[in-house]
Design a protein around this nucleic acid. Sequence first.
DNA 1: GAGTACGAAATCGTATACGAAGGGTAGGCA
DNA 2: TGCCTACCCTTCGTATACGATTTCGTACTC
Lengths: 229, 229
Amino acid sequence: MTEVAGTARDAATEGSKSQQAYAAVTARIVDGTYPPGHRLVLAAIAHDLGVSVVPVREAIRRLEAEGLVTFQRNVGATVAGIDPTEYLYTMQTLSLVEGAATALSAPLIGVADIARARAVNEEMRACLQHFDPLRFTRLNQEFHAVLFERCPNPHLLDLVHRGWNRLASLRSSTFRFVPGRARASVEEHEGLLRLIEESADADEIERAARSHRSATLDAYLAHAHDTHP
Amino acid sequence: MTEVAGTARDAATEGSKSQQAYAAVTARIVDGTYPPGHRLVLAAIAHDLGVSVVPVREAIRRLEAEGLVTFQRNVGATVAGIDPTEYLYTMQTLSLVEGAATALSAPLIGVADIARARAVNEEMRACLQHFDPLRFTRLNQEFHAVLFERCPNPHLLDLVHRGWNRLASLRSSTFRFVPGRARASVEEHEGLLRLIEESADADEIERAARSHRSATLDAYLAHAHDTHP
DNA sequence: GAGTACGAAATCGTATACGAAGGGTAGGCA
DNA sequence: TGCCTACCCTTCGTATACGATTTCGTACTC
């Protein structure tokens, strides 16, 4: 079946069924088909993907290791929720690793990268008018990806990706709750680009990138505190 | 054997077979039964542990996610090696996350913790006389564990544990190669304790903890460069 | 003598099957 | 009427079995 229908299908058809299952489930979590709290039943997913439960099981375990799903023995897996505490920890960790990754990749960033990042940021600025949180968040990720993707330390880069993945599961980004943060964010992006352009000290870049993210977290916390005192 | 003899056996018998397999394989990697480069054959391990290949497979995948083993499709898993580059990346990442974890846990560290850490450090100081790299390394881990273990951010703490685990796979620690680093390390430990005692700024503690580890890395790199120019 | 091609052994990947543990519901008893 | 218990159903956990893929050894040819 796999060969017949999907010949040179798409990137998802690559490799083992486990990988396919992983890709498929991840996509569904990120795009919201499986909302937070949704129960992931192995047999159902397996049937859905046209494979056996074994590869699905492996995929779920991998997702568990990455924190996108929680797992309970003999009970099953559920899509990890948007627990505010969880959010805090994830953002805190991400600020740390992304800050470092950005600093490490800064010396390797060329003019083309800078231009691309700036273009994305300008798009974000334009987006401020008729504000669309989802679009803004997507652009935000794209912007930062340009900045950290050249990080030479693969472990660190992997941690950054995991952090973003976890955040992706709550699609209704921070900016939905705290739209006021969006404008400041765009300005800080420009400042970050300047630092990289002028080959600033690694420490300085790391601090800037880290506090940029921390500020978003703080804005969210302040908002959450106002809403649920 | 597992069911008949071991009723409330021991901690290793807890939970699923997958967890048992994970614990067993991890232990063998850390204690050197499976040296770096050793090929992990599923069927052999399964037979050895008295279980089927499925749980073993899951355990291996988990170890892969943690970086203790490398995996190749349709080929198998091998215990991850001591590639100097890998070491650099791991230490770099560890310095980052451990520094942050130490800073975050500092306010939660009580006098008892300080006393224990200091006792361990004194033991390390005594150990400097008839130097034993393995013992020194074990004490070193114990010392740092006291300092970061109270970190309230579980993700971050998990990353620190993973980092240490990966380093544990190369038991012949840095201090074997660079014994001169040991004395400086003990002194820096004392400085770190002082900072925590006097409730220093979080940034300051983070910087101190990070550069402590970075210094160890640098010492190793300098040594490696001397040896293999 | 070296390189290549073919075949066999080893090992992984996945499917299917069965036993076990949890949760929900219905029925009975206080 | 409310709570407790027993049963059943759903879903997971593991074993076994078979097909797929890779690798190593050997023989043949240039």
